[in-house]
Design a binder for these strands. Structure first.
Lengths: 230, 230
DNA sequence: CATTTATGATAGTAATGCTATTATATTTGT
DNA sequence: ACAAATATAATAGCATTACTATCATAAATG
């Protein structure tokens, strides 16, 4: 991914934060460190107090940026999905055939995100791990309806909408484009987690990225389309 | 489901509880009420103190049955999966053709569980809702590996293993039987949740159970088998 | 009916998830 | 250059959570 992509958080709903973390050094440090810390100790053990300690600041200061750790998680996942959409837009820019577009999109959505050596503001590698392991905690909540009403899931909704349209371009009569996309995205994430922690729930296939391969294969068969030859 | 099915918890790993809740009135009340309360207020807000109040007992007594609310959730989900396995075994008993077995199994796994009028000890309707909304919190945890080593997910592992075998009976060369099963089970659960709370992520199709239909269709296409005619 | 065993009542503790207050920097507008 | 506004740091406090411990009483059992 190019550095030309400005990490503005314009695409993230501005009601998930109290003060835009991109607007100050402290804010950026909060986001950056929250990714490291949450990836390391997990959402449950993660607290603003610990984060405050990590960044040599304190709890109260973090609360001026985010109302709660759930909102912070919402911020991180929204950011991830809008980054992913950017990445997909960029990756599909020169591909006209919808079959190829779909295949590429599925690859980008389901592939393993590698540890990048570069010292970026936001570690995509860790953020991907957080999305895999913790994102569901942002919406599997008694506040979903309220949060949804406020538009906190719009990044994800929008991405799913666009991908559904590609499917409909390929097969306009396919009845379940949204289901297929969300099932494959969440499914791929689950499979990554299972591969690491609950291996009996997944399939080991060496010499390929089985998860991405499974996702592509399942998608094309489901919509009754022929996969572009490699 | 017959009442002849004894609700013994033999199939649930005995290390998820301290004292078997099926062994006493209080224990059964704990399980029964925990389902009602957790369904009502959600896993996060659920506490042993509140549960104690509900059953006119107290916190300390509940802690004699379950070490933590995470273990209680593990108990409930394990119970659910072993009940589901029983239900599937029962439902497939007289079906010889693997295609029909698979179709029936997918139906049982993904269908909406209706509110049953009968006053059963354990409400399958609510338990299903808990599994949909909260089950992932039982394993999306920094303790997964340890919990898995102790066999806390064996009910689910076993069920997935059996269903994979049906797939392999139909198509012995299919490479991703476990992935397909888990993707469809978790996927169907997600879709039920989305249909209620995040409708843009799913597809509305009237006049049928779209989620079960999608699951069946996707499964048969994925393994390249022909669906049994209805 | 003596003794385990199960439950209830109460208390206590460290940590969590905040809010509030005040002091001190830092930025800014004039 | 300086006053005013704004951002951050430091500290305290509070209700709740997630437990553990203790002791009394009730129920079951041998």
């Amino acid at each position: 991914m190019q550095d030309s992509f400005t990490y503005s958080s314009l695409q993230v709903n501005n009601r998930v934060y109290i003060k835009n973390p991109e607007s100050s050094t402290l804010g950026r440090k909060i986001v950056e460190s929250s990714i490291n810390l949450m990836d390391k100790i997990g959402y449950e053990a993660f607290t603003f107090k610990k984060l405050g300690f990590e960044i040599h600041s304190n709890e109260a200061s973090i609360y001026r940026y985010f109302e709660s750790k759930n909102k912070l998680l919402l911020y991180l996942t929204s950011w991830y999905w809008s980054w992913m959409e950017y990445k997909i837009n960029f990756g599909l820019a020169n591909i006209p055939a919808p079959e190829e577009r779909l295949e590429k999109a599925i690859k980008l959505l389901t592939e393993d995100i590698e540890l990048d050596g570069s010292f970026e503001h936001i570690s995509k590698y860790k953020l991907n791990r957080i999305v895999i392991a913790e994102a569901s905690k942002s919406y599997m909540t008694k506040k979903v309806d309220q949060n949804n009403k406020e538009g906190f899931f719009s990044c994800y909704n929008q991405l799913v909408g666009r991908l559904s349209n590609i499917i409909l371009e390929i097969n306009p009569t396919y009845k379940y484009p949204h289901m297929l996309i969300t099932t494959l995205i969440e499914g791929a994430h689950h499979q990554r987690f299972f591969a690491q922690h609950l291996p009996l729930l997944t399939d080991e296939v060496n010499g390929e990225d089985a998860i991405t391969e499974f996702s592509k294969e399942t998608a094309f068969k489901a919509i009754g389309a022929i996969r572009p030859s490699k």
